[in-house]
């Protein structure tokens, strides 16, 4: 198996992984680092359950080649609560406003929303919807998710 060694920042920590070059970022996160918050809902970039933030941008980790992560900074759902364990405002808003149902899309949904809010503190509903258009959800009809992101933006 052709392997590659990559060093990057994962939720603030410097890490190194030696994994097959053919692996994706998602597989590396889940299997190498046991961060299983990002999910594989489709494996081909069509559902967004695997969304993580790379250098400030939301990406589908399921189609992100692991060698490309060298030197970059990755933030996953596991890394957004603060050091004292206080939930990120998005996490809290999702619980408060029922933005979570089965929860399978939730990690990706929150990471897409975080990528938006990190750059835009006062998004319009359309901007919120655009930011999560690549995150499919069967449970919620998106209504309370969009509301929750709006609530978190105000925090």
């Amino acid at each position: 198996m052709k392997k590659v060694s990559v060093s990057f920042t994962l939720n603030g920590d410097p890490v190194t992984a030696e994994v097959p070059a053919a692996w994706t970022l998602l597989r590396t996160l889940r299997e190498n680092f046991e961060f299983t918050g990002a999910k594989e809902g489709c494996g081909v970039g069509e559902c967004g359950a695997c969304t993580v933030i790379v250098d400030g941008d939301a990406v589908n980790s399921c189609i992100f080649p692991i060698p490309e992560i060298e030197g970059k900074s990755v933030v996953t759902i596991e890394g957004i609560a603060d050091k004292d364990g206080n939930l990120h405002p998005l996490q809290k808003a999702f619980l408060d406003n029922n933005g979570v149902q089965c929860g399978f899309c939730t990690s990706g949904m929150i990471m897409s929303a975080k990528a938006l809010l990190d750059k835009n503190h006062n998004p319009t509903e359309d901007e919120i919807r655009t930011s999560i258009a690549g995150n499919l959800c069967r449970c919620t009809g998106y209504v309370q998710i969009v509301e929750a992101i709006g609530m978190a933006a105000k925090k």
Binding site: G45, D57, A58, N60, F64, S112, A115, T130, G134
Partner: peptide
């Protein structure tokens, strides 16, 4: 095209 995640890369 696609989604924000797709358009980012």
């Amino acid at each position: 095209v696609g989604s924000v995640q797709i358009r980012n890369v």
